[in-house]
């Protein structure tokens, strides 16, 4: 793999408006499925509070579980790090749905196949941004070459379980600010 593209979300800028999720759904004609979701996170302690939104989709992991478990070879990782789901090879066995800790692959009852964020690779190849990033009002969601970012300024969406940490999700978050009560 030559590079690893990944989403970077500045949670301090994200308004939780859901424009990214809606643009993804409309652009990829997914309804009623959503490949991108918005989650409100609240962390309240004795003297401080953190409220922010997480916009999440497929993390295009460095070591994807979906690719490992798929029996029909319906997943591939491009040289730019994008994890592709090849619909024409999918048999609808749901192995990827069961194995992804981030819940990225979803089973489509209309096509009887799995599907997930493809990082709008066809648009990227034509020099256009993904639908979600184009729709972001505040510029909170960005697509970056991850090697160019100083990792100590970012947080990674990952798990407390070592074996899951090994999937190496390619999504980073700028740490949320805290407000003193």
């Amino acid at each position: 793999m030559v590079k690893q593209l990944g989403f970077v979300l500045d949670v301090n800028r994200c308004l939780g408006c859901g424009a990214c999720a809606k643009a993804c759904q409309n652009g990829n004609q997914l309804a009623p499925l959503l490949w991108r979701r918005i989650r409100r996170v609240e962390k309240i302690s004795k003297d401080q509070i953190q409220i922010f939104y997480l916009s999440t989709a497929c993390n295009h992991c460095g070591d994807p579980e979906c690719l490992r478990v798929c029996p029909s070879g319906a997943y591939a990782k491009r040289r730019d790090g994008i994890v592709l789901h090849l619909s024409e090879k999918c048999t609808g066995c749901k192995s990827c749905v069961a194995s992804c800790p981030f819940g990225a692959p979803q089973y489509n009852l209309q096509t009887n196949k799995a599907g997930k964020c493809q990082l709008c690779h066809e648009r990227l190849d034509q020099g256009m941004p993904p639908f979600c990033i184009q729709a972001c009002l505040t510029g909170a969601l960005k697509l970056k070459e991850l090697k160019d970012i100083a990792e100590n300024q970012l947080l990674r969406l990952t798990a407390p379980v070592p074996s899951l940490r090994l999937t190496r999700p390619s999504v980073f978050y700028k740490p949320p600010r805290t407000t003193k009560l």
């Binding site: 798929c70 048999t91 609808g92």
Partner: peptide, 13 residues
């Protein structure tokens, strides 16, 4: 399987 007719592909990986 969502597509039983394509079951043979399950041997591909």
């Amino acid at each position: 399987l969502g597509h039983p007719e394509a079951a043979y592909r399950a041997l591909a990986h």
